[in-house]
Design a protein around this nucleic acid. Sequence first.
DNA 1: ACTCATCAATACCTTTAAAGTATGATCACC
DNA 2: GGTGATCATACTTTAAAGGTATTGATGAGT
Lengths: 305, 305
Amino acid sequence: MDLRHLRYFIAVAEEQNIGRAATRLHISQPPLTRQIQQLEEELGVRLLKRTPRGVELTQAGALFLDEARNIRAVVEQATERTQRAGQGKLGRLDVGIFGTAILDAIPKLLLAFRRSYPEVKIVLHTMNKGEQIEALRQRRITVGFNRMLAPLPDITTRLVANERLLLAMSHTSPLAAQESVAFPALRDHPLVLFPTGARPNFIDKVMTLCHEAGFEPIVSQEVSDAITGVALAAGGFGVCLVPESTTSLALPGVIYKPLTDLPHHAQVDLSCIYRSDDQSPILEAFLGTIEQMRSTLPSGAALTE
Amino acid sequence: MDLRHLRYFIAVAEEQNIGRAATRLHISQPPLTRQIQQLEEELGVRLLKRTPRGVELTQAGALFLDEARNIRAVVEQATERTQRAGQGKLGRLDVGIFGTAILDAIPKLLLAFRRSYPEVKIVLHTMNKGEQIEALRQRRITVGFNRMLAPLPDITTRLVANERLLLAMSHTSPLAAQESVAFPALRDHPLVLFPTGARPNFIDKVMTLCHEAGFEPIVSQEVSDAITGVALAAGGFGVCLVPESTTSLALPGVIYKPLTDLPHHAQVDLSCIYRSDDQSPILEAFLGTIEQMRSTLPSGAALTE
DNA sequence: ACTCATCAATACCTTTAAAGTATGATCACC
DNA sequence: GGTGATCATACTTTAAAGGTATTGATGAGT
């Protein structure tokens, strides 16, 4: 049986006349007669009763007419859904994010994407840098977000935003009175650093900046993530260098101060990563959304990749 | 798009390899490649990613695989249901019955049919003789039950049962003391007759029997149906001749007595009627059930049609 | 009762498209 | 850098759908 048989049968059933149905189908009458005979033979069921004025449906034929119309609708829907999936409009996007990536840029991006592609289900997976790479390779996620990614052959990195560094501290800190803080002044203040974990990381970056400024920092504590770092700073453990987006994290007693006397490269990137060979239209769509969002993301617009 | 395309695509998706899928489908590899390309082109969607080791599904392909399997299942079910309908095992049987046909034979028949064909929905329509003929011609019912049907060219009549006549009366009736009643004795007793309506009817039959026995009956009352007739008899309006199956109607104060001295043809038929040109397998099945039930129906077994 | 009109079915031919054969291109894997 | 596996392409064969002409059946109208 063929979809053609169904189409033909529906036409014949609706016209109650093989000749008229043939005209409607833009074929001649004899082949239509044969196709219907074929269908009846294959099913082993008489679908039509031939009368001198045309044909009429048997009970089985009436039932099959319903079924045929249903099948036609199911096929149409399947086609349409598949086409939407092929255009990246329908499906699922698994995103790997790190703990504090939930701040600022990424929610904005995901909301913008969801607005454009409401039928794509976004699933978030919290995982660290190494886990993201692993998950990308195993296709458990389609895209990941992270900072300071080392280049890899099979994973493409794409800069989403570049953020300035700020200093988080307790409002009781001796630096709290200043409008801004000169970076070299940090030589005399204990630092809370994060994140521990896969290298290179933000701790390495801060250490390098200090060395470039000609001092060895006093490390008060190394912690796993930004939230813990800011919390310790609030508790008086020291000051904590953070990416600008972290200011969304308004813990009680925490204040953020801009830094001066920093080199131009003293910024921290936020990038997304995906498999280099991934052709998925949903990924395409997501990267397109990032492109459109660039101007609204911190510094991103001003930077080349 | 064709069901063949779906079948082929499912095989390819399952084998993840066009060559192997071709083997499984008992065709060679190139036509299969082409059919898949055709499918992709028609949908405008890339369903497979070609790799050196075979093929793998894209997201859209994975979705289409689900859809294709679903369509296949829907088509299979449609086929099966249609075939059952063609065998009279699935569908609907509209039956016309008269008021007191609900007694005895007809319920037995309907129950037996439902046991053999549980997926045929039986719909009962209470209507009199004329309405049944009309409803048959308009296809609102497939089969009707009635008594004393005049032959018609487009309606076939088939005897289901032949019932003896009994006499219904009040337990206070002067005839109540006898074990049985000789028919000619009715000349002195007022009769309740039924049914009024389309001729020939049971009233005509009773009148003829009286005339044949050499008397003009005293007609106490003519009523529309057996229930009313028996009820009036119970109320003392007279005695009432009824078909044997009416004894299922145990109204308070009613007793039934056998009749003697009656000619052999003093029986009343119960027949079913259907359109002579009706080839419906459900009707076939129902007539088959009647055939099987004959021996258990009153006198039916002993009679030719 | 007979003819005509209508419609489905059949016979036979044409055209389209699916299946087969042979071969080429690509890429991992030794 | 060959070798084997896999998909794609070119070309031929075959099967099946479609077209034309005609027949057969049946009911309506004269």
